[in-house]
Amino acid sequence: MPRHARGFDTVAAYDWLSRRDRKLGTWMRRLGPIEPDPRWRRAFDPVDALARAILFQQLSGKAAATIVGRVEAAIGSTRLHAGTLGTIDDVALRACGVSGNKTLALRDLAAREAAGDIPGLRRMATMDNEAIIAALVPIRGIGRWTVEMMLMFRLGRADLLPVDDLGVRKGAQIVDRLDAMPTPRELALRGERWAPYRTYAAFYLWRIADAAQAAKTPTPRSQ
């Protein structure tokens, strides 16, 4: 059974994409190489990562971090999983600032972990992207985008393009000088030329979208 490495050669990806796509390549040279994500080499608990993803949904980073800190204090652990979440009841979770829907999602996550339905890192290494997505999206509160972010930023899968992500779509619009953002289907077709490094292309599309947004922000001037 083939194993999927965590991370990929970003030098090879840069060389491939900059030669493969002239328009994207122009932006890549302007922005410079993107270094490998250090998280690709770090061990992590997928259940803990998913629990944190649930808690961070629809909140600012600061507010979510405060709630996560309260939950960690309440369970006496920095790891969120079936064992530690089982030590706190729903009332205590709500007191930490966790919404009712997120409480239900955490309970579903813990139940599925206890049932052995959530693959660990060793098993994920033998699964392709779509198999991992199919295994995790049945969890309440976990959608395809959340799993794609884990695949890209934690597992370092090289060839994944999150076509529903607004930042990626906006970056593609800027690269191709389109009047409107491409639809997910149009972006998927456009991205076929970026294989097998679609993840690295997405990293640049995010940066391109961020650069365009920053350029629109007025520069403070002294009076």
Score class of each variant (00 low, 15 high):
87 T>N: 10
115 A>K: 07
67 I>F: 04
13 A>I: 01
209 A>K: 00
10 T>C: 07
126 T>V: 09
25 G>A: 10
130 E>A: 11
84 T>M: 01
63 A>S: 08
46 P>R: 12
168 V>I: 09
3 R>C: 12
120 G>C: 09
41 R>Q: 14
82 A>M: 07
23 K>Y: 07
217 T>Q: 15
102 K>W: 08
7 G>P: 04
90 D>E: 14
10 T>R: 06
215 A>G: 05
160 L>V: 15
220 P>A: 04
150 M>E: 01
5 A>Y: 11
96 C>Y: 08
162 P>H: 07
31 L>Q: 03
5 A>C: 12
222 S>A: 14
76 G>N: 04
53 A>R: 02
15 D>C: 10
196 P>R: 12
199 T>C: 09
101 N>E: 13
220 P>M: 05
176 D>G: 11
23 K>C: 12
12 A>I: 03
210 D>T: 10
25 G>T: 06
136 L>F: 03
189 L>S: 15
137 V>Y: 05
177 R>M: 14
141 G>H: 04
160 L>P: 08
214 A>F: 10
35 E>L: 08
6 R>E: 03
96 C>M: 12
114 A>N: 05
129 N>G: 12
43 A>C: 07
186 E>L: 14
151 L>I: 09
1 M>D: 09
93 L>K: 02
149 M>R: 09
123 R>M: 08
48 D>I: 08
223 Q>A: 15
1 M>F: 08
50 L>F: 00
166 L>H: 11
117 D>E: 15
117 D>R: 15
8 F>D: 03
5 A>L: 13
209 A>I: 07
82 A>H: 13
126 T>Y: 05
122 R>Y: 13
178 L>F: 09
144 R>T: 07
216 K>Y: 06
158 A>H: 04
198 R>D: 02
189 L>M: 14
136 L>Q: 01
162 P>D: 05
44 F>N: 03
45 D>H: 07
74 A>H: 08
95 A>K: 13
194 W>M: 03
138 P>I: 06
54 I>C: 00
201 A>V: 06
221 R>G: 06
112 R>Y: 03
135 A>M: 00
185 R>S: 14
174 I>Y: 06
1 M>Q: 10
21 D>I: 07
71 V>N: 00
106 L>W: 00
91 V>H: 13
100 G>W: 13
97 G>F: 02
196 P>M: 12
20 R>I: 04
91 V>K: 15
208 I>H: 01
65 A>T: 13
205 L>C: 06
45 D>K: 01
208 I>W: 00
64 A>T: 04
51 A>I: 06
86 G>Q: 02
115 A>P: 01
76 G>R: 07
216 K>Q: 14
161 L>H: 12
71 V>D: 02
87 T>D: 10
50 L>S: 06
142 I>P: 03
30 R>V: 02
130 E>V: 06
44 F>L: 04
